[in-house]
Write a protein that binds this DNA or RNA. Structure first.
Lengths: 234, 234
DNA sequence: AAATAATGACTGACCAGTCAGTCAGTATTG
DNA sequence: CAATACTGACTGACTGGTCAGTCATTATTT
């Protein structure tokens, strides 16, 4: 009984032309304009896809609409991306990968955690919560389960690196007595309010608005509350 | 032109006697068995829907499969639920509404928060994380955005009541100095690790398992860390 | 003119929801 | 207690609309 099996993809018949995305001629050739135009097209399609996927969700988004919004014909999308799922993956990659480096850099810092905490919280609010990246993170949360490949890519390229950086950071801070030892085991706890804010805003903001900055501040107060000892069981 | 034979005519429409349609005799008959059977059918459909929606997501789940799993014909589903979306709503309602009372009861308690905290965490793990309710909460998170009606129902009937109970609880605890005042403004912070655990397990468990009980314990330690209280401080 | 890029009408799969028809079970009659 | 009449719960083939992905054709660049 294959009832739990993900539905077979709609078909994926033969690939016609060779990958057009590949840079062809030399860099100094007069084909430069072509490449620029091509890159611009790609960007436009990604931007349009972000709009449609954010508002409709992956399944419900229509490539006809993505094409219209990007100002190209539907077929053109297939010159730049193998299929709808690949387009989605590339969108995630393009939006989130660049953040990793920044976070890893912060993670290597030796500043006291309470200072760094403010910086990280501010980074989250300014670079994720108040930008389109919020939508991408939300898409990852809501659609990731149906795309195991994507979840794997995201874990490998993004999440595991962020988690590692945070662990290093928290371990050092624990050694200085700034947080409990156990916290280094669960960086998820540190990140949780940020993710919950993203979910809350998308579902319940209209009933009960949420002041993210204030919430992050309160959360940080909890993390760095002056504590006697890392609490050891009797 | 009717293609090769329009269709094997469904057979002569018979429609027996001119539909009386009216309920006839008295309802005094022992038709109780009928009602039981009917309720059982409804349950079976809901259970099957939970399975299919959990594994496929709302959009991708096919009512044909729900019917097959429930052991009924597709048409039968429409005798019990107006449409696919209503089926989904009823599923959420049936699974989550009963929890609210329990939580409100806990919220009224005067036990010290650190004790109550353990109870609530245990309740979450045992009654949500380790049951199908986890899947329902996940569905609410992942699909809620496409169903504003459902999000509203959920906020009104479930979430706002839980939030209110938690606020009352936290306000009292803050008065006793057990937690910072500001926490009462953001019950989301208290619940966040639980939700993140649900998301994590559904997306990344296979790469990096998560010990929820331990995480909840660590989280509680943070919330109730001895803060600036007397007792042999440096 | 040749090569490359872009187009959009079209195809085939897909599925929610419908409804004509069936039949197990219940009520009524002889 | 049959035999007959009737009911409505249940079925599943079918419809209508949707949309990802294709490819012959047209446009643009070199």
């Amino acid at each position: 009984m294959a009832s739990t099996q993900p539905r077979p993809p709609r078909k994926a018949p033969r690939r016609r032309g060779a990958a057009p995305l590949q840079a062809r001629g030399g860099p100094q050739s007069p084909g430069g304009a072509r490449q620029e135009r091509s890159a611009a097209r790609r960007e436009a399609i990604l931007a349009a896809a972000l709009d449609e996927f954010s508002t409709q969700g992956f399944e419900a988004a229509r490539l006809d609409d993505v094409a219209k919004r990007a100002g190209v014909a539907k077929g053109t999308i297939y010159l730049y991306f193998r299929d709808k799922e690949t387009l989605f993956q590339e969108l995630i990659r393009a939006m989130l990968t660049p953040l990793v480096g920044t976070i890893e850099a912060l993670g290597a810092s030796e500043v006291p955690l309470s200072v760094l905490g403010d910086q990280i919280a501010e980074l989250f609010v300014r670079e994720v919560y108040e930008t389109r990246r919020k939508d991408v993170v939300r898409l990852m949360i809501t659609e990731g389960r149906r795309f195991p490949k994507l979840a794997e890519f995201y874990y490998r390229e993004v999440l595991s690196r962020i988690v590692a950086a945070m662990r290093a950071l928290l371990t050092r801070a624990a050694a200085r007595g700034e947080v409990p030892e156990a916290l280094a085991e669960f960086p998820q706890i540190v990140a949780a309010p940020g993710l919950v804010a993203i979910i809350w805003s998308s579902l319940f903001e209209r009933f009960e608005p949420l002041d993210v900055r204030q919430m992050m501040k309160t959360h940080l107060e909890l993390l760095f509350a002056p504590r006697r000892t890392p609490r050891s069981g009797p």
